[in-house]
């Protein structure tokens, strides 16, 4: 399994000289398997460049798994080149809603006054799926999606092959349901998604003092991201959903803080996600 980060910024794109190292594109992660299966996680602006590359690689079948429909996870879809190619089959998975189907909710982003072309007019063969309540498979990958603490219906994903496992929970505030360190994993939002995975991409938007002023906004402090990783026994934490105001320098301070917190935590490692980062899993 190869995991590639195409966008790791939270909330809004942040182009500019102060974000060139870690990148300003919003959430998008590619998971590619040895058998050629492509699973794309979220459709933030990072998906735009990924789209061109997928077409160059001759990919014609793509699974897109959306965690939720906040704009920073959806806004790139309209500029995803495979969507505009009639030879492409695109399966879009996302959280169910009581009121409207996944397709109807996404179609809102493809309608006036937000966009000139209707979703029904895109050339690719698009199929929408509510994520199942239990595990399911895509080719040789096993997937699981579960609702997690974040405003509005939001899921995280676990993807596993025979030899490795990976979890993606980019927008997540588990501490809103109580201090993580004091709870058994049974009572921690997202715990079964990330339990024992080789690598976990997790929300770490804030320093601790910033989080205190943003409780309930749906994101985690770096300390809570580390505490969550420790509680679920994940091997490696990739700090994700970078706060838009955080420059490269500030992000490096956040990474230092994460490393301080992981010291003595049984070999747990933490690193910042950056655009172009590749995580090879066996």
């Amino acid at each position: 399994m190869r995991v590639t980060i195409w966008g790791c910024r939270g909330s809004v794109p942040t182009p500019g000289p102060e974000t060139v190292t870690y990148g300003g594109n919003t959430s998008c992660v590619e998971v590619s398997l040895d058998d050629g299966t492509i699973i794309v996680l979220d459709a933030g602006t990072g998906i735009r460049l990924l789209g061109f590359q997928l077409l160059d690689r001759g990919i014609r079948k793509i699974h897109l798994c959306l965690t939720h429909l906040h704009l920073d996870h959806l806004e790139g879809l309209r500029f995803f080149a495979p969507l505009w190619n009639e030879r492409v089959e695109l399966d879009i998975w996302g959280p169910p809603s009581q009121e409207l189907s996944l397709g109807e909710r996404i179609a809102r982003a493809f309608s006036p006054p937000l966009f000139p072309v209707e979703l029904r007019d895109v050339p690719a063969a698009v199929t929408f799926h509510d994520v199942p309540r239990g595990p399911w498979t895509i080719d040789r990958a096993s997937l699981m999606a579960q609702f997690v603490v974040h405003p509005g219906p939001t899921v995280g994903y676990r993807i596993a092959t025979e030899s490795s496992s990976f979890a993606y929970i980019p927008d997540h505030e588990p501490a809103l349901a109580g201090a993580i360190a004091e709870k058994s994993p049974d009572w921690i939002s997202g715990a079964s998604l990330a339990s024992g995975v080789d690598a976990l991409v997790h929300d770490a938007q804030y320093f601790e003092d910033e989080y205190e002023e943003r409780i309930g906004w749906g994101h985690s402090s770096v300390a809570d991201a580390v505490a969550f990783t420790h509680a679920v026994g994940a091997g490696r934490l990739v700090l994700f959903h970078h706060e838009p105001r955080h420059t490269d320098d500030l992000l490096e301070q956040l990474e230092d803080r994460a490393r301080d917190l992981t010291n003595g935590n049984g070999g747990l490692s933490a690193m910042l996600a950056h655009e172009g980062m590749v995580i090879e899993l066996p």
Binding site: G134, P135, D139, R140, S142, V148, V149, I188, S189, G190
Partner: peptide, 28 residues
């Protein structure tokens, strides 16, 4: 409905924490 179901995928042992609604209800 799920589409590409292939038997070569590893069997998934469904791990379950408490449902998110129960987690939030408990905190409430």
């Amino acid at each position: 409905m799920p589409t590409a179901v292939v038997s070569s995928a590893p069997p998934v042992e469904e791990r379950r924490h408490k449902h998110l609604v129960l987690i939030l209800a408990r905190e409430f």
